[in-house]
């Protein structure tokens, strides 16, 4: 499998967070690179895995620029500037949309805030095209509350993909979904990641199997003995391990062994 890791897209440097004297996050360091494959538009899918309550949501908000870390910094972009709120797309666990707007209008709003100045005709065509790709064409005139949870999640992901943000953070994207819907979500996320070379999906989850199956890189978040606050304890390069970009990876014996082993690490 030929690939190359080129420029740094996102970097967390010594990120730490404390609340009322209690350390939540400590010395969080990781780097995300652009992965280039010949003849393939290959985006990045990175997972941050940790057990519930470890501080994933706090790190999620820091990566999105919504919260400032107590120490350290998150850098993004070519010039490696400090992340600002609005530069990273966010798909929350409960798929927040504008309930007073139709699905079509929700997607139009995302395009209105895209860097490119699309004409109305362009917007119409883009939405039509993407709605067909993501099986939402028949729902465009409906309101968000008329859709199922899975459909709302798709709209939410598509909405973020339509902005000019290249980074999309997903908070527990597999939570509360049945097995069949999870497979669809995995397909959808892979589609989004390959829409643009620089598209980077960051999945924050405690669902080890599904997160690993879709990712090229995994960071494990956990507590270390005798140290307060969670940090990144391990990085798994699934490309090097030969476990990335394989739709059938869940059936692989080695993969299942790794998933079982990971449960003890978080």
């Amino acid at each position: 499998m030929t690939y190359q890791k080129t420029e740094v897209l996102l970097k967390a440097e010594n990120v730490g967070l404390s609340y009322a004297g209690k350390i939540i996050l400590r010395d969080v360091n990781f780097t995300m690179h652009n992965i280039v494959r010949p003849d393939v538009c290959q985006g990045q899918v990175v997972s941050l895995i940790g057990r519930s309550g470890i501080g994933k949501t706090q790190l999620f908000k820091i990566l999105a620029g919504m919260n400032k870390p107590t120490t350290g910094v998150v850098l993004i972009g070519e010039d490696m500037h400090e992340v600002r709120e609005g530069e990273v797309g966010v798909v929350s666990q409960n798929y927040i949309l504008f309930n007073h707007r139709s699905i079509k209008r929700n997607l139009e709003i995302a395009l209105e805030h895209n860097d490119k100045n699309y004409t109305d005709a362009d917007k119409k065509n883009i939405i039509k095209d993407y709605a067909e790709k993501f099986n939402l064409a028949e729902h465009l005139d409906k309101y968000p509350l008329q859709l199922s949870g899975g459909q709302r999640q798709r709209v939410s992901i598509l909405q973020q993909a339509l902005t000019s943000n290249k980074f999309i953070l997903l908070d527990e994207p597999f939570s509360g979904l049945d097995v069949l819907v999870i497979d669809k979500v995995v397909d959808l996320l892979l589609k989004v990641s390959t829409l643009h070379e620089l598209n980077t999906l960051i999945i924050v989850s405690h669902d080890i199997e599904n997160s690993l199956a879709i990712s090229d890189t995994v960071f494990i978040m956990a507590n270390q003995p005798n140290k307060e606050g969670a940090t990144i304890t391990e990085k798994l390069d699934l490309i090097e391990m030969g476990m990335a970009w394989n739709p059938e990876i869940k059936n692989d014996h080695k993969f299942q062994e790794m998933v079982a082993h990971m449960k003890y690490k978080i």
Binding site: A64, G86, V88, S92, F98, Q159, S164, N165
Partner: peptide, 14 residues
């Protein structure tokens, strides 16, 4: 109003 609605707006660049 859910705080996440404001966050949605900021992620959409409003």
């Amino acid at each position: 109003i859910d705080k996440q609605e404001y966050e949605l707006c900021s992620t959409l660049g409003m």
